[in-house]
Simulated scan of single mutants.
Amino acid sequence: MSTTYQIPATTHLGEVSLKISNLDRSIQFYTDVVGLKLLTRQDHIATMTADGKNVLLRLEEVSNSITLPERSHAGLYHFAILLPDRKSLGLAVRNLVASGIDIGQGDHLVSEAFYISDPDLNGIEIYADRPRDTWKRDADNNYVMASDPVDVQSLFDLSASETWDGLPAGTVIGHVHFHVRSLEEARSFYSGILGFDVVGNFANMSALFVSAGGYHHHLGLNIWAGVNAPINPANATGINYFTIVYAHNHEVEQAVERLRESGVEVRPDGDAWYAADPQNIGIRLIAEA
């Protein structure tokens, strides 16, 4: 297998699927607190959208489910909802505050972000990017990032005259961040096989960020749950799969071939292909509609 493969720069992320314990409760949370809209519901599965057309989140109720303590297993740290601008972020934060939920925050220099958890302890980041021409890299070509306090008041001031009506069209899944068993194993899989570029080798934080097309990160990978952290049982709430969206079918086929050449099982289902990473986190590969 070629070792020089680089994932196409136009690649981005799509739909995230979560396993949850109570569908009614999760629909209400993601509608009222997060600001998504219900798109479809059938039996134990619902899909959520921002624009009324594209699925951003799929919720699957798991019978006899268990919710494990945070940072105890390999799996989801958070999935990140990217808003189109600061005004939209200000409105979303106003709604989060009104809901009374616990909120974390961080000015990461490349972005401004807020953090919450859903009723099953699935982590969620809601953020807006700063202009790409303001992002800086260090001498090792890693993006310079921080966790400074966000200027919340300026976000409130920017959105003061606007009315909250849920997350706007243009909202997308910006990135996903996982607890992994080994950073070396994760790097070999996501960079070595799938071809994501390393854009943040943060050894001091026990974390690795990778992306396509120079983005600050499409995947965050950390060992904060411990090296060789146990894999989630099948009935545990958490990540089911995330979606990698390629521009063209031949790019999907190339990724599938690389996975198979590396001994990873890949199966087709409709227009998508499904695989799993070393943590048994599902990966859905599709071409742009």
Rank of each mutant, 00 (worst) to 15 (best):
Glu70Tyr: 12
Thr163Ile: 09
Asp197Ala: 00
Thr134Pro: 07
Leu155Val: 03
Leu121His: 14
Ala229Trp: 05
Tyr215Glu: 07
Arg41Met: 11
Ala128Phe: 02
Arg132Ala: 05
Gly104His: 13
Lys37Cys: 04
Val152Asn: 06
Lys37His: 09
Arg284Phe: 12
His78Gly: 03
Asp138Val: 05
Ile244Leu: 11
Tyr30Met: 06
Ser2Asp: 14
Ser262Ile: 08
Met205Trp: 13
Asp133Lys: 03
Gly170Asp: 11
Asp271Val: 15
Ile231Val: 08
Ala9Cys: 07
Phe29Lys: 02
Pro268Phe: 11
Val180Thr: 08
Asp102Arg: 10
His218Gln: 03
Leu59Lys: 01
Ser206Asn: 14
Tyr190Trp: 02
Thr134Val: 08
His218Tyr: 09
His177Asp: 00
Val172Phe: 04
Arg132Gln: 05
Ile101Pro: 05
Ala80Lys: 01
Leu96Ser: 00
Glu184His: 09
Ala225Ile: 07
Gly100Pro: 08
Pro268Ser: 02
Gly104Asn: 05
Ser65Lys: 08
Asp271Gly: 13
Glu184Ile: 12
Asn141Thr: 06
Ile20Phe: 13
Leu39Tyr: 12
Glu125Trp: 03
Ser72Lys: 06
Tyr5Gln: 04
Leu259Gln: 05
Tyr215Pro: 00
Gly214Arg: 05
Gln105Asn: 08
Thr243Asn: 04
Asp271Lys: 11
Gly174Asp: 00
Ile27Phe: 14
Leu83Phe: 08
Leu91Tyr: 09
Val34Thr: 02
Leu57Met: 03
Arg137Cys: 11
Ser161Gly: 07
Asp118Cys: 02
Val180Ser: 00
Asn141Trp: 13
Glu162Met: 13
His108Arg: 06
Ile244His: 01
Ala212Trp: 04
Ile286Pro: 00
Thr163Lys: 09
Val110Gln: 01
Val252Asn: 05
Phe79Trp: 02
Thr40Tyr: 15
Val97Met: 10
Glu257Asn: 15
His175Asn: 00
Gly220Ile: 10
Lys87Arg: 15
Asp24Phe: 13
Leu39Val: 07
Arg94Asp: 10
Val33Gln: 00
Leu13Thr: 06
Leu36Tyr: 12
Ala287Gly: 11
Glu265Tyr: 15
Glu288Val: 09
Asn64Met: 09
Thr237Gln: 08
His218Leu: 01
His217Gly: 06
Trp164Asp: 03
Val110Ile: 12
Ser111Thr: 10
Glu185His: 09
Gly200Phe: 03
Pro233Val: 05
